[in-house]
Structure formats: C-alpha cells, structure tokens
Design a protein around this nucleic acid. Sequence first.
DNA 1: CTAGGTGCAAATAATTTGCAGAGGC
DNA 2: GCCTCTGCAAATTATTTGCACCTAG
Lengths: 325, 325
Amino acid sequence: MIVDSWIESLRPAGSKRSGKRDLIVNVFLRQQGHLTADDLVELIGREDQRISRATIYRTLQWMVDAGIARKVDFGEGRFRFEHSYRHPRHFHLICKTCNRSFEFLSSDIETLIEEVAAARGFAQRQSVLQIHGECDACRTGRPPLADGGVTELLFARDALRIAIATERSGLDFYSRAAKLTKDARGRRVFEKLAEEEKEHLGTLEKRYRELLEQDPELESRPTFLFFKGAANGLFAAGAEQLSKGVNDREALMIGIKCERGSHRFFKRYGERFEDSEGKKIFLEFADEERVHLELLIREYRSLLERQQRSGKIERRTPRRPRVNA
Amino acid sequence: MIVDSWIESLRPAGSKRSGKRDLIVNVFLRQQGHLTADDLVELIGREDQRISRATIYRTLQWMVDAGIARKVDFGEGRFRFEHSYRHPRHFHLICKTCNRSFEFLSSDIETLIEEVAAARGFAQRQSVLQIHGECDACRTGRPPLADGGVTELLFARDALRIAIATERSGLDFYSRAAKLTKDARGRRVFEKLAEEEKEHLGTLEKRYRELLEQDPELESRPTFLFFKGAANGLFAAGAEQLSKGVNDREALMIGIKCERGSHRFFKRYGERFEDSEGKKIFLEFADEERVHLELLIREYRSLLERQQRSGKIERRTPRRPRVNA
DNA sequence: CTAGGTGCAAATAATTTGCAGAGGC
DNA sequence: GCCTCTGCAAATTATTTGCACCTAG
C-alpha cells in the first residue's frame, strides 16, 4: 500500500517499529475530519483495549513530528488532529452549532498574507485562518448535502479547473498574438505556443473527466480552492490587453508576464501537496510553463537585438526581462 | 474619565459595583498587548495580595461578556486577553521566538473571507487569522523600533491616509468628469462634488496633522491597516476609465460606483471602532458619501428621463442604479 | 434582606511525565 | 544488550466550581 511506504519514508531516524503504533497510525489515517485525542482513544479502544491513553498521545505527537499529522486548534480548549496524507494545508470554516469544520484554500488570501508579512518584516512559518460561524446545514435545517469528500480530489478538481481556464485563455492569447505579430519569427513562436496550449488543454480536459469518474458527485461538491485571479484564466488580462493594440515587443512582454504567473501558480500548488498525483501533474505543468517562459524571453531578446541593429529603437528604453523575479 | 463611563455603559444589568472588580478592570485596561490570566494575577498581586485567582478569572469572563475584553487563542494551550476599548478587531502576527504579537487589519483579506463564507453558505460570526513566524527584531537581532503604539492611533492614521487618497482621487475624478460632461446640469453636479471633495481633503489633511502631533513617531510606525484597493484612492480606477472616453451617463454611473465603494469603506471602518473619535470621523464621511451617492443617482435618473423624452435613447437599455446593492 | 461578589480549596480536563517492565534490532 | 516503546499512575497546567461568607443596593 502506498500509504505504508509514505510513512516508512517519514519515520524519524532511530525509531523502532511497533505493532501498537502501527495500529494507531492506521486507524488514524482511515478517519477523515479533525479528531480529538479522545476520539482516537475511543476508536482504538474498539480494536484493542490494552492500548493506553498515554501511548495514543505519544503516537499523535510522533505523527506530528513525522509530518503525518497536523495539530490544529479550534479554540475549544483541546487540540484536534488531521492527517496530512494527500491533504494539503488549508484554512477552516468552523460551525459553532454542529462543531463540524470545513476546509478551503484561497490563493488570493495566501498572497495577501504573504504581502502583509513581508511589509512587516515578518518571516512567516505558518498561517491559521478560521472562519467561525454557522454552516449552511445548521442554518437552514437542511441535510449537509455532498459534504466535503476527499480533499485531494477537491483540490485536484479545482486546480484542474483553474488550469483549464488558464490554458484556454493562453490559447486565446497566443492565437490573437500570432495574428497581431508582424515579425515572422515572433509569429511562429506564438503559433507554436498556441499549438501547445491546445494540446495541454486536451490533456487537462481528459484528466478532469477521469477525476469525475472517481467520484460521480465531485462536480456538485463545494468549492475548495478559491482563486479569483484565475477565474478566467491567468492569460485573460493579457488577451484583453492585446485587443487595445500593442506592438510585437509588447505582445511578447505580456506573454512573459502571463507565463511567469502561471508558472508560479503551478509550482506553488504542485508543492502544496504532501504527496499525490496532483503534485506530479502540477509540477509537470510548472516545468512546461517555464519552458514557454524561456522561449518567450529568448524571442524577446532576439527581437530586441534585431530591432536595435536595424536602428528601430533607442538602446536604453526597455529593460530586459529577467528569468527570475 | 471617559473609560469609566464607557464601562458603565457596558455593565450588564443586575451587576453590582465592587472595588475588587474595579481594580482588576483598571489594571487590565492600563496594560497593552495580550495578557494571559496569569500575567494579570501577577499584576494584581502587586497592588492587592488579597484578590484571589478565581476572582480574576471571573472578572476576565465578566469583561468578555461585557465587551470590554476579547479572549484570544494563540494555540499556546491557554488564552490571552486584549481589551477592546478604542481597539478594533484585527488579525495577528505572532512571533514564535519572543512570543510577542503584532496586530494588523486587511480590508482586502476581510473581503475575501466574506466571499468565501458566502460561497459556502456560511454565516460568519468572527474570523481568526494568525500569521505565525519570526518577527523582524528577532530575526535581525535589531531592537524592535517604533513597536506598535496605540492601535487606535495607527488605525486612525492609516484610515486617514486612505481617506485622503480617496478624496484626492475623487477630486481628480470629478474635475475631469466636469470637463468631459456636455450636459450643463450634470456638469454642475460634478463641479459641486469636486468642490466638496476639495473641502473634505483640507479637513482630512488637517486632522492628519493633528494626529501626528499626538505621537511624533506616528509616521514611522508600521502599517496597521492594509487596503490595496484604496492605495491610490477609491476613485482612481474611475478616473482612469474617464480618460478612455465616456458619455455623460457613463460618467455618472462610474461616479455612482465609486461613491458606493467609498461609502461602504467609511461605514465599515467607522463601525469597526468600539468607541472612539475615529468612529465619528468615519461615520460622518460615510454619511457625506451617501449624500453624494444619492445626488449622483438623482442626477442619473434625471438625465436618463430627459434623454428618453427627447428620444435620444431606447427605453430599456440601462438599468437604473439602486440605492442599496 | 437578598442577589451578587469573593476566597479558598477541591474539582475538571487535557495533556505530560517518571518509572519499571516489554520488546524490536 | 541497548535503546525504544508501553502501561500505569501521578503530576502539571489552565481553568472552573461548590460552598460559606461578605457587601452593595
């Protein structure tokens, strides 16, 4: 089983195997949601009466140290634990009525948090965001329809939606840019990229369909990953800029900016998964976007040099874009 | 003393006066930062040995119920308390090295939180956002320069900066709109509003200078209230739109949107203060912006009717703006 | 006089720890 | 055999409560 090898890889050096600990870890990983130490004591008690409370506390701490579990504090005066296997870091909505908690992620909020931390000279380690209130089910008395599900799937679903929107807007952007570009070489670059985005789009849509097969209710489950900036794809703003009329160099520069954004997005969310297929997909995309980025930058420089040689522009006007920024 | 009357106003019905409680409340309000119950026990112990731990816990709870104090949980396994007198709700940066905590507010993050809650059908009561990490002073070994200060002043400083930027962009917007508008009556409205924004701007700048007199180091203290959207004033985007060429009706509509935004901003942050001069200033602005808003809406309707009567436009095209939305 | 308010000590509640025995490598 | 894991009971920490007494209104 994959889980076992994952745990094996995380086991701290010098620690010994133990049947009891294995049992506790397995029972813990089988659960979903946020367990209190006591919940786990109760669950373990059903399987083996002779495991003591202290061992469970110690194992919980061991799992946190090993990165298998995360300790969360909902202000109840005791801690809860959630496992991190195929379960990215996230924020919480906490219902004060039914005491359940729901998970979400917001790329936009994370970005703002980073900005605040930077502005205050703070080296952030971890952020806690909890929205306390009352959930839909409790407020309306309706059953908690399609509640949650496996976070990994939700993450993948939303990430794929964003990726699809991104590739779609990228395709649109590159097609338009190809039409607008006068320089033949630059045009060919845009055409090539449009072609690639089209291919990626197909791959992504296929993967999205595969995902839906894993959970027929997947599409009806609530949003997990919020990312306003990418609602219409990360290239959408760029495509709009194109329609205002730009020259070849400007078009390349816009493309560079867009690719940089999507490279970052894929990298960041790829790394977010502790371990999963999602990680692979995303890091693969990140790499591909990086290749595009480099291609565009090369093309930008080439165009710039050719224009300079033919005396079309003054030397010092545009800053060369850097690969890292 | 103002504090006393404030507490008096919050005192729960049926509660009796007590010298001990008064002492605890006074000592608590004199402190700044986030105290643990134990910190307070220690502080009280210096003044009166005969006040018991239980009374302090009970008084702390009483203060929370009365709205004098807020109970915060930094995940340390115990609670801390902060007073709410002239101290708006806020988020925290928590240094894991020196254990101090710093406060900030982000209008942008709050907006996003509201959006997430709404998308999930969650009735939010309160949000907790904590950025855990290491503070600048601990990381660089430098002294904690100009650390914090009175939150009320910081809030007022940042809010005034935003207000000033807003009025400046508003002045810019209305001046341009007045120049662009062909309809004489509409032009007069814009001129009047430009005039008013100019006056407000003067008032605000004067208030800002007064604030600086209260704390000479105020300008060098770190940002407390983050609000990216208002960095260049809430009318900045509108002013930019104007330069793309719009007709009279569109100009009015943009103005309405801007005024609505600034009305909301002032109302929201005015209400944020538990009690203070800031509240007064902001709610006053909110009212003034509302008057502007209504004026613009009346003007929009009037223009629309006049245009309809003269057959200039088809009847059903533009939706009438609503006062609430 | 009577509903709070207060002190003291005991009770809770979650979690940790000391120590002696059990068990993996 | 050594070092880690485990159980048990006692300790710790933060906070709450029962109860008798005190005091303001």
